[in-house]
Design a protein around this nucleic acid. Sequence first.
DNA 1: GTTCTAGAAC
DNA 2: GTTCTAGAAC
Length: 294
Amino acid sequence: MLQTASGIESRVQQKLGGNPTSVDSIVVGKGNEVKMKPGQHLLIVNQLYPYTVQFKEDPNRGHVGTKRRQPASEERENDKKASSIKVARPAERVASSVNNAESTLTIETTGHWSLGLKASMQDPKMQIYKDERVVVIKDKYPKARYHWLVLPWESIPSLKALHGEHCDLLRHMQQVADKMIQQCKDASSLRFRSGYHAIPSMSPLTLFSSHVHLHVISQDFDSPCLKNKKHWNSFTTDYFIESQDVIQMLEKNGRVTVKEGAGELLKQPLSCHVCHKELPTLPRLKDHLKSHFP
DNA sequence: GTTCTAGAAC
DNA sequence: GTTCTAGAAC
């Protein structure tokens, strides 16, 4: 249990919506616990299940709720903020149940991008398709004229975590991807690919809230957000694993195996995905692409 | 993942 | 001199 400055232990428990395999969440430290201070914003970044926020007194410390009590004006200010969850005052020592009703929980979308992905998928304004299993959002930094992400509601941290039972879900994600492509007005003139990145970003920050997502991307790569070799190679080398290949692997082996050294593919020389001409720099490559996609 | 920027490459 | 990349910081 983590200790906060005010002597209040904050404990966040996830009430399971009947699916014990999908426990995950807002874990920052070890275990299902998060360091919180009274009044601090809690961002529920994952799943659609209700959460319970419990405060309990630390027996080793006195002055509960006295040192860090906010001035009344500040309290009102915080109450006004839609992104905060109303948490009971420490002094009241009550278990405050926070459900995921829209009235009590809205999602912060201005935080770190890795939170942004999970926040965005929950944000109705971002959702361009939604059903009981998946949601589709536009990539915040599209690497082509069309670039969508298909995300399952179920939290699956990476390709490694996939197993046989996910086959159906992934087939559904693929179907939704195909639907997105069909409804695109430029579907007749542009080629599309849908697939997964071999290795999720491994920085401590990204690890915190990684979530498998299917990229659906048009093959023009005409976008100001495509800025470096890593961007290019992540979509044009075998670092990009076709959705169908992932599904096949899963059907055959019950697992998805990623070739060792897939990360090295990101450092490959820049090569045009259409004619395979090698270009010395990204600006030169982007110039070259104009000849294929006027 | 993005942004920023030092210094390599030209 | 400018362009561009790659690594650090976030």
